[in-house]
Amino acid sequence: MQPTPVVIGSDMLVSEANELLTERNLHGLPVVDGGKLRGLITRANCLRAAHFVARTQSPDEFEYFHNRLKVSDLMVRNPATVNATDTMESVLAKGQSLGVGQFPVMDGDIVVGMISANEVFALAAHFLGAWERRSGVTLAAQQLVPGLFARIVEAVESAGGHLRAIYPIGSSDPDADGHRPERRVVVRFHADRVPDVIAALEGAGFSIVESVDAGNGAHQQHSQVQPHHVTQGAH
């Protein structure tokens, strides 16, 4: 998150808030009155208002926007928030379910930060090695049973690979009967011979959906066959 965020009062002019958003390259500003979060004004809110004024080409609208329109007239009241102790996964899920791109981060009643979808996605990309020259594979969807990750590590290292990350993707929420869904698993590693790692994983019973070979820049889609389900106790 962005700690010690810039906060503004509801009496600030929208034109001033827009300048602050632009100068600081921010996506949103928490609106705080009397130490309490009252709203959130976003760059998108300000841009829509400015575009409306530009389209009307009315001197009166222009004067109102720049000299009279206040943040309280435009802000999102009682915005959705997240807690400083929430996980990044829960923040991303909340953003997706609500269609919200940024949240004030709260510690009790105090705004302690701002977090945007861009920051969450950037962190996820970092975990997945998107900014590094890592090879990797995506395993077909399967139940995350005990011993699964150990089997993956064993297969990768048996083929001379050096594991860097294992990351399940997809929802982990159980259904109405309490059953958790199958999830694909992204595996990132360094290896001199990626085909050897793929062969070792397939030999261990895993189905490969796609692979990336950082050594030659190759990205390959694999035929999706029914995955082998690793049984419990395989540590």
Rank of each mutant, 00 (worst) to 15 (best):
Q232D: 12
A117C: 06
L163N: 05
L37Y: 03
V71R: 01
G178L: 08
L123C: 03
L13C: 10
A84Y: 10
I152Y: 02
F149Q: 05
H219G: 14
A54K: 10
A17T: 09
T138C: 08
R193W: 02
A165E: 15
G34P: 10
S171P: 04
L98M: 12
A204L: 08
P79T: 01
P181H: 07
K94L: 15
L47H: 06
P30R: 04
A130V: 09
I41S: 00
V82Y: 00
G203Y: 07
R164Y: 08
S211Y: 06
H190D: 15
P146L: 04
A84C: 11
I115G: 02
T42M: 01
V225W: 05
R43Y: 03
Q226A: 10
V14I: 11
V112N: 00
G113T: 08
E132D: 15
Q221I: 15
T138A: 01
N25T: 12
T4D: 15
T42S: 00
E63A: 13
D192G: 10
L148I: 11
H228T: 09
G161M: 07
R151D: 07
V105W: 06
N83Y: 11
P168Q: 05
Q226H: 09
P195I: 02
P227G: 05
L13I: 08
G217P: 13
F52H: 12
H66F: 08
V137F: 05
T81Q: 07
H179N: 15
I169K: 07
G28N: 05
A159D: 05
R24Y: 12
V209E: 13
R133L: 14
E182V: 13
R68H: 14
G161N: 04
A84I: 14
V156F: 01
Q2I: 10
H66C: 08
V209R: 09
W131Y: 14
P104L: 04
D86E: 13
A125R: 11
R188L: 12
S15V: 08
H126M: 13
N118A: 14
I8Y: 02
M114V: 11
Q221E: 12
L69T: 00
M114I: 12
G108Y: 11
L128C: 13
R38G: 06
L37S: 11
A191T: 09
G147R: 01
V156Q: 02
V71W: 03
A200F: 06
A218Q: 13
I208N: 03
D213I: 02
